[in-house]
Design a protein around this nucleic acid. Structure first.
Lengths: 332, 332
DNA sequence: TTGTAGGCGTTATCAC
DNA sequence: GTGATAACGCCTACAA
């Protein structure tokens, strides 16, 4: 593998001069610079990041910890973070933890040995102790989607509680009284928060869910099962804590012969692309996913370079997107 | 940052001994080992990968080049590769290239400076020259989903041509004669191959697409537009070169008042999770996505350690999954 | 304007 | 069994 020495030899000069043109620091004659650049081009030489880091430079590596990237919400989030970070000069390890603390711990150990400059995490557990070694070394951590009480330097987390309230209120405003809630994964902090918001709004109207079904995995098939169970209680409105849950519910309702929104109103959360492309089109609360990703990337960057944070980290608001799955309940 | 020296000092011994317990090589007395391990635990010390690599070790880094991970097909693929690779001891850079050769080149340069041990790529361009520097250094490249003529060490690519034929044949077997094709992104090699397969099968039955609409971006909204255009030619069957295309077509047909499959049959390709959760449920050709990802990871690993490849890299076959969007054409 | 040398954290080679 | 030490590739004083 070509090293700086190889280039120096090729250009008949010293490593110091090569280094100078590489970083254009110090003086180099135009002539020498030309020779060196020729050698570099010819060899396709790339300085070793390892050596640079070892020498005392920044690693420009960042770790991204997400439950998964095979569900679209996190796929979009991951891509927007990776791209923003790359443009800022960082390279990312995108890690899928499957909501498992054990997995997270393994990845954290890897981050440590790779000397990452920062971490963005949507962790399974709020305030998990395995983040302590990162903190101890002063490595900044940005929490995304979910808090990381006490361990995060900062956070990009939408108001899930409010989101939950919005979902419930939308159905209540339409006049629904028999409302069911389904969602997964149950141990996800954001899901729990949304659920709390839903229940709070319901309670304010003197209501309680006629059925509440939480599952472990975040997929259509399970959502279908949860919804089937919930529908046994004959709600007129159903809240999916994610779009995946809501879409599963559309199918369950369909298979039960229910017409949407005539017999059953359904609302979801996230506004993933599929939400607009199911039939009927799903009413949902939109999260500005890409925006969140970019914000997290920029926030981490500021943390890494030690720039003071702009306090007013105004995240774009959640917005209700009314499509075709919600309407007033039909007098039975 | 704690280094091996810190540990040595803490354990009152030399760096050499610490290194020995770290890699348990050579002799270390139980007593010394205990002291060293205590120091390591206490410090939460992790040896620097950079230094190890510099010293001459393997980097255990691999680069994964994909058009994107915000579409589910690639998200699933990326996650399965990353996980398999991590279990094999590698860390991955998952890079979204947006089908752009320029992006790819930037990432390749990064791979070079990071000294990755191998690369898995679904490249925008077959045989793109920017892979040459990797080849030159003997860095193995596994092509996935799409060939990389001349640049890949090996490839995990399904038979897209066959897949195309299967789609067309399914509709032909049902008796369809007026068949349209839509898909994107048009410059993707796999899309082109599937299209070729479709046209070949059609030609064998003396047919030609009544409309062929290819778009640039891989999303529902554009698919909707492509389908709307294609439907102007009144096909009885429509082939979506991806599930995304097919799902967009379902919506376009729906908005035009067409009943599926009564007025129009639709078939897709990939079998992403959404395919089973649209209404009506999409008939499609299933790719074993996760299996492909794992295979690519294992193949790259074998390449990296220099183990001879098992020639019979039997990939699981493509399978037709008939659901509710295809049926014989209705005599108009 | 250019070159020499030291040191970053590791591991392997050699003495002791 | 254990401890110095060289070397990996790079950058930066410092010397020339």
């Amino acid at each position: 593998m070509a090293s700086i020495k190889t280039i120096a030899k090729l250009a008949q000069t010293s490593v110091a001069s090569v280094s100078r043109v590489l970083n254009n620091s110090g003086y180099v004659s135009a002539e020498l610079r030309a020779k060196v650049e020729a050698a570099i081009a010819q060899t396709n030489y790339q300085p070793s990041s390892d050596a640079r880091v070892l020498r005392g430079g920044k690693s420009n590596l960042v770790g991204i910890l997400l439950p998964s990237i095979d569900v679209q919400f996190f796929g979009i989030l991951a891509q927007s973070m990776e791209q923003a970070l790359f443009d800022l000069g960082y390279q990312s390890f995108i890690c899928s933890t499957a909501e498992s603390a054990a997995h997270e711990a393994r990845y954290v150990a890897m981050f440590l040995s790779r000397r990452v400059g920062g971490v963005i995490a949507a962790s399974a557990e709020a305030g998990a102790a395995h983040f302590a070694p990162l903190r101890a070394r002063g490595i900044p951590i940005v929490a995304i989607d979910r808090d990381l009480h006490g361990y995060a330097s900062d956070a990009i987390v939408i108001d899930h509680d409010l989101g939950g309230r919005m979902m419930a209120q939308h159905l209540i405003d339409f006049g629904h009284r028999k409302i069911a809630v389904i969602g997964a994964p149950l141990h996800s902090q954001s899901i729990q928060r949304r659920l709390a918001g839903v229940r709070a709004a319901l309670a304010q109207s003197g209501l309680e869910p006629v059925s509440q079904q939480l599952g472990k995995t975040h997929d259509f098939a399970q959502s279908y099962d949860l919804a089937s169970r919930a529908l046994a209680n004959r709600p007129t409105g159903l809240i999916g804590l994610t779009d995946i849950a809501a879409i599963g519910a559309i199918h369950a309702a369909h298979d039960l012969g229910l017409r949407i929104p005539h017999d059953l109103s359904i609302i979801g959360f996230d506004n993933i692309p599929s939400a607009a492309f199911v039939l009927p089109r799903l009413t949902t609360i939109a999260q500005p996913i890409r925006h969140l990703g970019r914000s997290a990337a920029e926030m981490l960057h500021r943390l890494i370079i030690g720039e003071p944070q702009t306090l007013a980290q105004a995240l774009p608001a959640l917005t209700l997107i009314q499509r075709d799955t919600t309407a007033p309940p039909c007098a039975a």
